[in-house]
Design a protein around this nucleic acid. Structure first.
Lengths: 240, 240
DNA sequence: CATTATTGGATTTTGGAAAATAAGTGGATC
DNA sequence: GATCCACTTATTTTCCAAAATCCAATAATG
């Protein structure tokens, strides 16, 4: 009971994969989000079998799941590939995420009790204690910060009694993760302090049940989107 | 070139299934939405193979896709089943749908041209010309009305340049379809005329770019949700 | 020379059979 | 009489080989 939630070995309450297909799904997803599999290039079944050391069926099942989530795109008889990052796609994704998270936050603020508030304060504290490193190449520290950042945003809407809504939000969070590298690579000290302030304001507004909190959350995501968009446009020419 | 788009043989631009898995997916989905496979009962792979006359692989792929869409729920090593309809689930689904469609409508009203307006007027006309039958047991007429109703709502947001958003909305529409039977069975003359009026107001507000149109759309869905909810609560005891 | 068929190789898709897991059953023990 | 354990059955999950399909390069034709 002492270390049920304190264990930070694995983000969230990751249940151990019960089938090969699940394990493959998790591994493949991580490789997509981390950028290990390049956008645009189509994934060959044969290579995937070697890489993840299993048969066709689990691969196929994992691919189908990722396609349904939108993390991969498929053309019949032509394989699957990671969609290319574009400004249009970025806007499309953030628009959905903002609409859904706003809804979830309203719900959470209606139904959340003091236990929920405690979770938010705890997650905010843990986020504040792992500041973004000045050096954008410190992968381990960046990853740690990302996990805590995710945990913070997750805590905000955790009290919403809407499992489908929360599952959809999780999917959109994954989608925005695809742009993670682009975002973290360009973080400067000024952006960091601005981000921290937004998080603090958000936390306080939510705890105080300030009706403007959902707008703050939306604005937070919009600034995050704009930040990525700025560097996506410039790097558009370089890549591919 | 003459009849590229004019052919109305099949609703929407239903591309013919290119693989067995696709065909199975479509058939199984239709069976779920129409209520042919009962909620709660777990689907046996063996039975599905017989029913749809194919091997395991396409079945498995179709199931995976439907699970990812939320139309089926799966437990590891314990098969899949149609989720039981509940008031909580209904609210969860409609909450998502309303948030997303509102967003899409705002976008469509910004980007829609007169071609889009024409599509709306056309779809509205076709909906008005196929009034809901007085007899709630006229399955063919009900189905025809449903198709036109869907086409109308689809036309409203068709101009939104947001493929991911529209795909997600389509998924949510499917989810609400699960409650189709419950909704159509209890439609009375009063409900019908009320529905028609809401559609007309919506059409006019959107064409006129009335900023209150998104609110009208949300209210339309809310009344639809409340209608289903009323009869879901009473029938909860009977079934299962 | 441009355009259309053909062919070969690569890739996806499928069906069935084997392995792994969960559920059900009966009997022995306390 | 109730509980637990070993065993049997049912079901899901996985693997693999064969069939269907697609793509690109080549040959043939006007």
């Amino acid at each position: 009971m002492s270390d049920m939630n304190s264990s930070a070995s694995i983000p969230a309450q990751t249940t151990p994969p019960r089938t090969v297909a699940e394990a493959t799904y998790v591994a493949l997803k991580e490789d997509i989000l981390s950028g290990a599999v390049l956008p645009g290039r189509s994934l060959l079944t044969r290579e995937l079998i070697e890489r993840y050391g299993c048969g066709i069926s689990p691969i196929r099942e994992a691919l189908a799941k990722l396609v349904a989530e939108g993390l991969l795109e498929a053309a019949s008889h032509k394989g699957v590939r990671v969609p290319l990052p574009t400004v249009e796609d970025l806007n499309d994704i953030y628009r959905i995420r903002i609409a859904l998270e706003r809804e979830a936050l309203v719900l959470a603020m209606q139904h959340g009790d003091d236990h929920w508030e405690g979770q938010i304060l705890s997650a905010a504290h843990r986020l504040a204690n792992a500041p973004l490193p000045e050096d954008p190449h410190d992968a381990a520290a960046l990853r740690d910060w990302e996990i805590r950042h995710r945990a913070f945003h997750n805590s905000l809407i955790s009290a919403a009694p809407a499992p489908r809504l929360k599952r959809l939000i999780a999917q959109m969070v994954d989608q925005t993760e695809r742009y993670r590298a682009l975002r973290l690579a360009h973080f400067g000290p000024k952006d960091i302090s601005s981000f921290i302030r937004e998080h603090d304001l958000l936390r306080d507004a939510i705890i105080a049940r300030d009706p403007r909190a959902p707008d703050l959350l939306a604005a937070h995501f919009e600034s995050s989107r704009d930040f990525v968009q700025k560097y996506l446009e410039t790097s558009q020419v370089e890549s591919v």
